[in-house]
Design a protein around this nucleic acid. Structure first.
Lengths: 407, 407
DNA sequence: GAGTATATGTTCCGTGTTAGGACAAATTCT
DNA sequence: AGAATTTGTCCTAACACGGAACATATACTC
């Protein structure tokens, strides 16, 4: 039951019905392909005539194409299968992180076309943009046979104003109010979309065709890494809030008297579960003096810690188990506030999921208010799926499939 | 950018455009009344003909009526003003709390018709339903001249399944899996809607005509009382989550090692800021042994405490100031997660708002991640506005104005 | 192998809705 | 009294879905 905002509404025009049904057809083809016109008519509960007209419109626009004829199940004419046309279009995803910047190229469905390339991130924004431009050009040149590039999606660990194309604040990169979109778009001659990495990860899961199987209009993505990035999906839409800063569970406290966090406050969830926090726990050092030990933590990673834990190092296991417990306690808060159908968890710590899951679950159950809250599905997203890069790609690929804004 | 759920979508039918525009007209009349057909056409950017047709449909259905002719501003024919027809319809709101149950009767616009009556809540559900039925009948009999009752809205401090009409768990009432709707509806012969009180309060603010002035598609209602009830509005819609249990910021911890909360966990926000917590702080007692002191806290209320603080009792002031600080710290989490345009705060503690606001603000700024987050508007909703009862009424009155579900 | 049954995709017409403009009615200004 | 202007209605056009008929393609049956 949504309220119509009497100061910002969209009147239904003559073509609005068509626009709505067109997007539904597009989404159904995406979710069910290969699929015939008759299938679509059945799925939508409209006459075949209507489905045919909608399909021919999409064919004319080149968004879908007719493939081979399917096998007739019983007797009767064989259906002509329809597919999303992702052949001659590609998207580039870029993931900018403090240490390295990653690049991936995919088709319109988000299917990876090549490997992931990367280069060291320069601290200087100008230099980084130049290097990035060069690399993206190279990448596109490699796949020249694939026609037009639909756009470049860029994700950044920090606060972003996507409408303005600006990075407002990215602490780990040391950026403040940087216009990232326009220089890139000008240099590359393609549209550029930028977004916070946590939100993009959530978007990637939302638009993954796999998510069409599970009902996941409400979900949360938690990425545990150097920092903790979070994206929340409500009613099939990213929760943005008034300033696109919603979702910051990372800085909700577990204990206001807890360890100091990079955000300046104390006891934030992030200060308990980030990779730095886990490593500091292992080394028995306080997080607040993390700067001097940056080199140390750079050399010794959470993966190393997990390896030691698996090898039987009790201190390593204890550090990881603590993180697991705090992870679960924080997830409980997310469940109590959002009540999502599913939580996706990414980050290095998930490589130890079989070790930590029972502890995470137990801690989670400790603080969830309801039994079904405690049973909320948790899916691990391995690093090999490149959730941030997929999110970057979704920034460009998803809008074509989005529901029209109406009423 | 909303994703269309390929397993649950609504195709646009022949009448969908009309349905959408009809609701827009209804909302515009509600927000701008008195208003003419020509005004509506201008507001909606459609031809006067279309507006006329939509209006005549609403006239036929009796949802609006034509009032007196307005004064012509310049020259030209005088407009006929249109109004929401709330004359011959009424709604009853019911607020069930542990100690007392309150009843209010309003017109369809939520305008109060009489005073608020109340009676002591029986612990026995059967008895309570009987008593409630009697009282609602009395109330309706008093306003017999007002035609049909559109329905009864009931709010309950606990977990509710509105679709099933059941109260799943209401700790303060001691209820578990109670079908509240059907017995009431059967006894009264009117539709009954039930909802959690926090969510209903948020709904009431969303649908208050006043809210049409401020842009409040994203807002949060925090009601601080015996417990802490919270309702979140995202994109003009109550955040429900998968099981209608979303919004429970009350049980997000401030410190996991903090005082025991009634929910069983420790350190919940509620355990720091509920009236019981504030009073316990004053009396220097632990909350965990609150049961024996129930009579004491019943006799001595937060209002009394505030009176003492205003009279100069330093201990009383200290207790209130602590609550203020914890209130602010928790509000910061809400801002970091939801980033609402506005937070509404209700409950007894708000009668001391002029005392506590600076402390709340300071604590809030301490933990909000951004400057504009720290500047989030906070509106106090005084008890005289009866937010819970207005929420109960909104449960019945609002659906007629809601946006149609599409795509 | 011809005929029948059945499924797919197209086409045509009916109905409902917005789009655009003409027109009568009502009011003020000159 | 007449011109100008605004409101509200009405008529036609354009465009969408709704429904059914029809051509096409395939498999089954005799």
């Amino acid at each position: 039951m949504r309220k119509i905002n009497p100061h910002d509404f969209r009147v239904a025009r003559r073509g609005t019905s068509r626009e709505i049904n067109r997007q539904i057809v597009l989404n159904l083809i995406r979710a069910h392909q290969p699929v015939s016109r008759a299938d679509l008519a059945r799925l939508m509960n409209v006459r075949r005539g209507v489905a045919s007209l909608l399909v021919s419109e999409l064919l004319n626009e080149g968004l879908i194409f007719e493939g081979a004829l399917g096998e007739a199940v019983g007797r009767g004419r064989r259906p002509t299968f329809l597919y999303i046309d992702s052949r001659q279009r590609c998207v580039v995803g870029v993931d900018i992180r403090a240490s390295r910047t990653y690049i991936m190229i995919t088709d319109l469905m988000g299917r990876q076309l090549g490997g992931v390339s990367s280069f060291q991130s320069s601290k200087d924004v100008e230099v980084l943009i130049q290097e990035l431009t060069k690399r993206v050009r190279q990448c596109l040149a490699e796949y020249k046979e694939i026609g037009a590039c639909e756009g470049i999606g860029v994700v950044v660990p920090g606060m972003v104003d996507p409408a303005a194309g600006r990075v407002l604040h990215a602490p780990t990169l040391g950026w403040r109010d940087i216009n990232l979109r326009d220089p890139l778009a000008a240099a590359l001659g393609n549209p550029v979309q930028i977004e916070n990495s946590g939100k993009a990860c959530a978007l990637a899961q939302l638009w993954a065709t796999r998510s069409d199987v599970v009902a996941s209009g409400n979900s949360v993505f938690v990425s545990v890494s150097d920092g903790v990035g979070i994206g929340i999906v409500v009613n099939g839409e990213i929760l943005r809030g008034r300033h696109n800063t919603a979702g910051e569970f990372a800085h909700v406290p577990l204990s206001i008297d807890g360890p100091r966090c990079s955000c300046g406050a104390t006891g934030c969830w992030e200060a308990y579960i980030s990779n730095l926090a886990t490593l500091s726990r292992y080394f028995g050092r306080d997080l607040s003096d993390r700067k001097p030990h940056a080199s140390e933590t750079a050399a010794f990673t959470v993966e190393d810690l997990i390896a030691r834990a698996r090898a039987g190092d009790p201190k390593a296991l204890a550090a990881i188990n603590s993180t697991a417990r705090y992870l679960g306690l924080g997830l409980a808060s997310i469940i109590n506030v959002i009540d999502p159908a599913r939580i996706y968890v990414g980050g290095e710590i998930t490589t130890a999921w079989n070790l930590i899951e029972p502890i995470v679950r137990a801690a989670l159950r400790e603080r969830t208010l309801t039994d079904f809250g405690g049973a909320t599905e948790i899916s691990v997203v391995p690093a090999e799926e490149h959730p941030r890069l997929r999110g970057a790609v979704a920034l460009v690929a998803a809008p074509a499939f989005a529901a029209p804004m109406v009423a």
